[in-house]
Design a protein around this nucleic acid. Sequence first.
DNA 1: AGCACGCCGACT
DNA 2: GTCGGCGTGCTC
Length: 649
Amino acid sequence: MHLQVVALLLCFHQFVLKSIMEFIDVLFPINLGPLTYRCPLHLIDRAIPGMLVSAPLKKKITKGLILGRSTCPATNEIKDIIEIHGESPLIGEPLLQLLDWMADYYLASKGLVLKNMLPGEAFIRVKPRKGSSRQKIHPDISLLDVDEKILSGIKASISEKEYRTFLIHAPTSSHELSCLMKIVEWHKGVIILVPEIAHINHIVPVIRELAGERLCILHGRLSKGRRSEAIEKILSGEGNIVLGTRSAIFAPLKSVSMIAVMHEHNSSYKQEDGLRYNGRDIAVMRGYLEKSTVVLSSICPSIESFYNAKRGKYTLIRPDISVKRPRIKIVDLRHEKRLGPNLSKTVIDASAACIKKDERAMFLINRRGYSMLQCRDCSHIETCQKCNIPLIFHKEDKSLRCHYCGSISTVSDICRRCSSFSIELIGGGTQRIEEDIKKLLGIEPVRLDSDKIRKKVELEGIHEMIRAEAIIIGTKLLTKRIFETGEFAMAAVLNTDMNLHLPDFRSTEKTYHELLSVSEKIRSDGKLFIQTWMPQNYLFRFIKNYDYSGFCDEELARRKKMSYPPYSKLAIITFKGRDYDDEKVRGVVKRMADLEILGPSLSFSKKGQKEYTLLLKTPSKKKLHSAVMEFLKMFEGYKDLKVSVAIDP
DNA sequence: AGCACGCCGACT
DNA sequence: GTCGGCGTGCTC
């Protein structure tokens, strides 16, 4: 009897010890690493990674995610968690692995990654409402017949439940969509990514037809309520076909069989602030972790994806279909008669012929406003004092505007540099083109570039606004929002060179993508005019014949020569703040002998603050990481210095 | 001395 | 994100 009591006491002692020893790591959706808490014994059974938990944080009870068991940390004060919510984890093992991978790869805290993965609304569980999906009127999309043989590999891969990535190089956008719909048809646990919200609205009718109530839409502009609803629908298992933008790649689906990334070359998949990730790359990684099939598709795949397909990392699917496309005419501005800045006679003659036949034409120019101001005597161009870039004259209110920082000033008659009174308007933006066209063709064009239409257009597309117009003038903004193909008899891209001159190793690739996208808006028997001062640029050789593979090969050869991605890994480090120490940065740069560093170069933020940027170029991911880490360590503890890193910029 | 305000660092 | 600590500066 005595022995039994002792045994019982011993047992109790063990029990107490054990309960004291149960520690768990909790992650909050804030820029912070995991924190260790004690888990009361009665909750320990449910302390599974991915579970939603309430815990005290700074005198407040905050919701976070359990990451796993932990050991007693060195800190003196360890708090108890309050409660564990629900019966099953909010996110599963693959997403937790993805979280770890992202924190590691993008050199960010796990908390910041979590914040991006699950918006605040995910932490507030709601009861889903039913039948609340709004119906909008959209133009019908007709799908093409697709030869299903070319997709059999994808279908097999999905049923095998093994990771594999395919790259569909589609002949046209509607072919791209049609292929995808054929794949989605039979499966559940699907994520479809599109670059922008307008794309969602465009294809929603088609996908709803396939998915019905299983369809879930996810994007950054959803209201809190709608987002909670969508997330709840996904968690309940009812919503298993997710259509969304970048952040939808984190949709907490229980199982994922296929992830599709449409228009995979599109740069909107890159998040440019906060955690700088690329949704397309995350899609491939999530596919790998979920053992699912990834389908990247585009009419002009990114050079990186093309390269991955070339060396067998992805399986390339290229439907053997010949498509009649508009003819491309390269207009050599060096030898052309010009009827205004940025307007060649060739283009004007062609559009006049267009109007005669009652057909429609589109003019594209990547500059808003009327023109720039240049001094005749000293050729000084008026620039923004803060940003150091040319100011643009806006005729309607006679203002001078900086298109970078948005500052507005008045026009001065006197040259800032030499005090001459002889100032002229040079170059032309959309406003100037509008005026010139009106003069030359005697027709009132519609100009689409103002900020007024931007928001509306972002969500609803532009089709309604341009339906009846003969001549349309716009910026890049315009083409991105036209989804209907073959609307115009001709298009003229007036200042292609501006794109090509951008200080970006992807500028030629991007220009190809933009021009091809414009060509899709033109009828197959129409014409695309591309004005340039440098027709010898290799881009034109390839695009003339729509030879994208040829272009990719050439581009890859050039990237290899210059060791740019995909033949190297890049990171950009930016320094902001008063404590920037140029000598120290240059010193660190000197010591890092085995990698290439460009800069530091000075630029200005929109608030006019100085920013110094460094471009790091390394042969491998490992080297890139260690170099970046060294920089971060070096400037730890500098008070007024913000160092931020962009991996794979 | 007493308090308002703003900045900054830490959060288990 | 957001709370408390601390410094600054103004007022009673």
